[in-house]
């Protein structure tokens, strides 16, 4: 190729990949923070129902200085929004460290492998493999569900592309997508006694980080973490506990009844109900949960889910002190 036509990203672009490091699988900041042994904080952005890039940046800005990485959800709850690949590309361009969520509900293996390559080309360094909610849960229940892969097959696919530099078909890639791969686990729903085996299966398939479903039931979380530590799983993957803010007792009840897999013990709801200011109490609970998670052996960080309460995330993280004064990178810092 003519040297003048070659594409060189500007050197001072904060979104440029970090220097390669042999002990890291990606060139991203999120992996670097975890491997350095810091307690990481991630949160998630709800992609807008809009073709406006500024809305993405406005939503990301709320997490400035509080989060090491931002998940971009992929049609969460089977509702249609801006694509997670686009959100991640926009965020990468200005230097954020986004986590690309890929759900198996809407795309087959051809589309997904294309997205992984495309996202990596645009600077995305982290991918989260999900099976995804069924289409019946969302705003397009008449859509055709795909589910060609499941989360574990997707993790295997990502690992094959990255480590063997080929498609599933065997066709070689000129440049492999160097992404840090993750998945999710829900320790609170049946079969509870086998959830740790499911976690092990995901790690065997290639998960290097795990973000859990909402953790409100600390004894159950501790029990699973103890099993994970005993099996040596926390040596092989970074586990981030999912925490959330509940706006009120009613919201908590609604979440518990309507969102699959959300487990909120009664004592949390009673505590919210008894509070004068339920919103403030919800945030206080979140702060306490984060502090408690940090004490649990094997937990490497927290994933804060605050749908429609994103503006409080930075404050909650600061209040909890889990970053130990560390300030995650953000544009302009």
């Amino acid at each position: 190729m003519n040297a003048e036509l070659e594409f060189h990203p500007p050197v001072d672009n904060p979104g440029s990949p970090l220097p390669e490091n042999d002990s890291h699988v990606s060139q991203g900041r999120f992996e670097q923070v975890l491997r350095a042994g810091h307690f990481a904080v991630t949160s998630e952005i709800a992609p807008p129902d809009s073709a406006d890039a500024d809305q993405v940046y406005q939503r990301a800005q709320l997490f400035d200085g509080a989060c090491d990485a931002i998940n971009a959800t992929d049609g969460s709850g089977a509702n249609c929004h801006m694509s997670s690949v686009a959100v991640c590309a926009l965020l990468s361009h200005v230097g954020y460290s986004p986590i690309l969520q890929i759900s198996c509900r809407d795309k087959n293996r051809i589309a997904i492998q294309g997205d992984v390559l495309g996202a990596a080309a645009m600077g995305v360094c982290n991918v989260l493999a999900l099976t995804g909610d069924d289409v019946s849960a969302g705003d397009h229940p008449e859509a055709k569900p795909v589910f060609d892969l499941d989360s574990i097959s997707l993790l295997s696919t990502i690992r094959i592309m990255r480590d063997e530099s080929r498609f599933l078909s065997g066709r070689k890639l000129d440049k492999a997508p160097k992404v840090f791969a993750g998945s999710t686990i829900n320790p609170f729903v049946p079969p509870i006694e086998n959830r740790v085996r499911q976690l092990q299966k995901k790690i065997n398939a290639g998960a290097e980080f795990i973000q859990t479903q909402y953790c409100f039931d600390m004894p159950a979380l501790k029990s699973m973490m103890q099993q994970a530590v005993d099996l040596g799983l926390t040596e092989r993957a970074f586990i981030l506990a999912g925490v959330g803010t509940l706006a009120s007792a009613n919201t908590a009840r609604w979440l518990r009844t309507n969102v699959p897999g959300v487990h909120i013990p009664d004592h949390i709801i009673e505590r919210l109900e008894g509070a004068k200011n339920q919103k403030a109490e919800g945030q206080k609970i979140c702060v306490e949960l984060m502090q408690e998670c940090k004490q649990i052996e094997g937990i490497s960080g927290v994933h804060v889910m605050a749908y429609r309460q994103e503006k409080y995330v930075a404050e909650i993280v600061k209040e909890s002190g889990v970053l130990d004064g560390r300030k995650p990178w953000a544009p302009g810092y």
Binding site: P145, D150, I152, T184, P190
Partner: peptide, 21 residues
Amino acid sequence: CPKTIRNGPCGGVRENGNCEV
């Protein structure tokens, strides 16, 4: 499985062990 998962379960199982879908 409504999602034809080959390495299940997913995270949406109900508290009584029934399917989320």
